[in-house]
Amino acid sequence: MNDLHLTLQAQFPDDVLEVHNHFGDETAVVRREKIQEIAAWIKKNELFDLNVLIDLTAVDGSELKWKPRFEVVYHFYSVRKNHRLRLKVRADEKDSVPTLTGLWPIANWFEREVWDMFGIRFEGHPDLRRILLYPEFTGHPLRKDYPVNKRHPLIGPKN
């Protein structure tokens, strides 16, 4: 156990809001405005060396009465050090999260997917449009208030 989350908290005491390592997954919740800075730091830092953005997704907490509503979840991995870290930022529907496209090119598609599925905006994203669904689709299906079988067919019968 490297306790990366604790080290990160010591480094950014004001910006890390919460840490835990449930089930051994080291996790830090950071301030939304600082995600770019912290991600750049953990990518460069010798001890962290988290050079791969493995995954980027979001969770809609509206059924759990989360405030703010969404959590954007980042999973990082270090190929050289062989350890992982999960970062999370919290955002509301109106908020936009700073993009990580400048640091990892793959963030481009991951963020487009989160926009498509949850409707979370990413500030500074070069090309934020739908990726899995089509432009005619209205709504963001992975939001908890989206009914599972509400369809927007392009051709054929309407529902």
């Binding site: 599925m117 990726i131 669904l133």
Partner: peptide
């Protein structure tokens, strides 16, 4: 992409 989106997560 997205032509085989089958809503696994939903």
């Amino acid at each position: 992409i997205g032509y085989l989106h089958r809503a696994f997560e939903k």
